[in-house]
Each structure stands twice: as structure tokens, then as C-alpha cells.
Simulated assay, not measured.
Amino acid sequence: MILHVDMDAFYASVEMARRPELRHRPMFVGGAQRGVVLSANYEARKYGVEGGMSSVRARRLCPQATVVPPDFDTYQMVSRGVFAIFGTITQQVEAASIDEAFLDITGSLRRLGDPVAIGERLRAQVTDEQQVTCSVGIGPSKFVAKLASTRAKPDGLLAVRPHQVVEFLHPLPVEAMWGVGPSTAGRLRQLGLVHVADLAHTPRATLQRAFGARQGGQLHDLAWGKDTRRVVPEQVECSIGAQETFGRDTDDVELVRVELLRLSARVAARMRRAGMLGRTVTVELRFADFSTISRSTTLSGPTDVTDEIFDGGWRAFRALNLQRARIRRVGVRVEGLVEADKAFQQPPLDAPDKGMREVEVVADQVVRRFGPAAVQRASLTRR
């Protein structure tokens, strides 16, 4: 069971979250006088403004549109937050772009329930934590899930069950097919193939003679919903992180400290599971007004030990010197990852033969066997 998640007008949505006054008027992200439109909100799209269009043409189509220059650092930060939410559902996540991903949730169904419930939970969490919307398509293959998310836009969800695939696909125009651009679509229409059903009922050999063995065969298979491609997660992550939104905004420093420890333990466990070490610890904070800041610190050496990650994160938090700021969400991320068996580590001369890392490795084994509550730090058992 595959989910395809596609953010709605991502760059524009991030800017509207920062500037709510733009929500109900046409706007786009890009150059004001030169350059191209990177993302347009749906109000601007009513006038024909689209991504990839020149800014000059966009201003001609919609003179009243507000033009916002891009802020890629903020877009990357929001994207990391969205992908962190994906990680709470499944580790089988394949990034298609900064604002689009496939999730294989087959292994999560027993834990989280029905696919539609999982998709709605994901959409609600993205909206609540990142203040942007996404559309979700659910299907038995990447191809069907991708088409379903396109049909669900904007801010919707569409599930196509295995027995519904043919009924869903066949009425669609051939342009909806994956890999069918304007040139291929024109050739298909010249052959009288207008809908996916027409493709499906054309002999495979005929399509292969017209478009070649590979493309013709693929067109025929996809027209019947046959797609064997799997979700392929990144083999080596450039960073590993976790975040948590408080039940209510807080300025309690002790509560933040405990949550930083909890997140550090979660990140460290993920790093050990992935066989990675890192030495740059970043703390991200989102405040009650939805503004976001981050602060990083570099450790003396690469690590995957909870206490060392927490110490770095706590130092980074204290360096912000916040004065009773009300915090909505806190996150911990370790960057600059290297494979554990290739990393050089210089232990201090007085280091014991076995330390906290060995304790945590054993705790990982117990948790895997008996569940997350089997071994915990005492400070994290108190609410």
C-alpha cells in the first residue's frame, strides 16, 4: 500500500503561512520583474499563472498579484519538518523532491490502522505543525498513488483500492499517464488513442511497434495499473532528526529540557539503527506566533550516544538566551553523518572499556523485543 504526498503550491503555501494577509489574494513566489514563477497560489492560478512561467507574463495575466522573493532556507526547514512527520509513519520514504514523496505503509497498517486513516492523520499533522496543506493519493502502486494525489488536489485525499484500479484509470485522458508528455500524447491521439481505456485495449505488440519495445510495453502495463516499482528510501541520510509539538505552548525551561532529552534519545536510537555517527547537533524551535529559529553546535567527535547529543542540543538551546518565550514545538537534528564503521573516534585516555554506548546498544535490543516502554530513563517516565 503506497501513499503519494504532494504539498499544495509549496513555496507559496509557506509564504502564506508567514504572511496570512496573502491567503485570499493572488500571489506567487519568484522574481518581480525578471526570472520565473516558482510557485503560485490557487488564487493566482485562476488567472492562468503557473509555475515555470516567466514573471513578465505572470504580471501581464494578473497585474494585482503580490510577488514574494524566494526564501530557500525557510522552504528547506519546512520540508525537513514535513519529512520528519513521514518518518513517524514509516521508514520507507522515497523523496521525489523537496515537496513530494512516496511512502510505503504496508508495514504500518497493523500498527496504525486503515490507509485512509493514516493519510488523514498525516495531512492533519502537516497542517497543524507546518501550517501548509498537502494532498495524498493512496494506491497499490506508485503510479496509481501519484495519479490519485493529483486528482485529490488541492488539500484532499483519494484512495484507490486494488479492485478499483481499472475503474479509476480507464476514463482518464492519455495525458494523465506517467511519462506521456505533449509529444507522446500527440502521437497517441493521431492513432485514435484518447483515453487510458483505449491504450489498455490496444494490443501490446501494436504499441511496441509504434513506440518501441520498452515504452510501448510500459504504456500497456500502466494502462492496466501494472507497476512493479518499489519505494526506495535514501540509503544514506544526510541528517537524522525528531521533533515534538507540545500539547500547549510553554515557557517552562525544565519541560523543554526534558523534551530535548527525549528527542535526543529517539535520534540516537535511529542513528544506531542506521549505523551512522554525527557531530553537528541542531536544535529547532517554533514559537507561539509560528516563527522558527535554529541553533547548531559541533561536538568534539562523531557520536550516536544520547547523552552527548543531548549535551550539544542543550548547549545550543541555552546559547539562544530566550526570555520567557512561549515555545510551540522543539526539534533535535544531527547532521554531517558518517558511517559508523568508517568514522575515526579518539576515546579519552580515562575512558572505560564499556560505557553508555554499550548500555544503549543493549537497551535497543530489549526495546526491539519488548516494546518502547521496556527500558527508559527515569526522568522520561515522569509526566
Rank of each mutant, 00 (worst) to 15 (best):
V253L: 12
G119P: 03
A148G: 07
W314F: 12
E175I: 12
T282W: 00
V330D: 04
R23W: 08
F86M: 00
V144H: 03
G179W: 08
V362S: 14
E100I: 01
R57I: 11
S291Y: 08
E284T: 15
G35Y: 03
G107S: 14
A351I: 03
F370N: 06
I240Y: 03
F72K: 13
G52H: 10
W314C: 05
T303P: 07
E234K: 11
T303H: 02
S141H: 01
A84M: 06
P347W: 07
Q76R: 15
R59K: 15
L261A: 12
A44R: 06
D311Q: 14
A351D: 10
A265F: 04
L169T: 06
G216T: 02
R248H: 15
Q130K: 00
G107L: 12
A269E: 13
Q345G: 09
L112H: 09
F290G: 02
L112R: 03
E129A: 00
L22R: 07
S55P: 05
R273Y: 10
R151Y: 08
F86N: 00
T202Y: 06
D73C: 12
R262E: 09
Q323G: 11
D6G: 03
A152M: 00
R279P: 01
V258N: 14
T90L: 06
M16W: 06
M53Q: 12
M7D: 00
D353Y: 13
S300V: 10
V362P: 08
L219G: 09
L191G: 12
I309F: 03
D114M: 08
A95Q: 11
V174L: 07
G217R: 05
R34E: 08
M1Q: 07
A9G: 04
T150N: 15
L255H: 10
H4S: 01
G139H: 04
R59H: 08
Q64C: 10
A197G: 15
G179S: 03
V194K: 14
R34K: 13
V93N: 02
A152Y: 00
E94Q: 12
A213C: 10
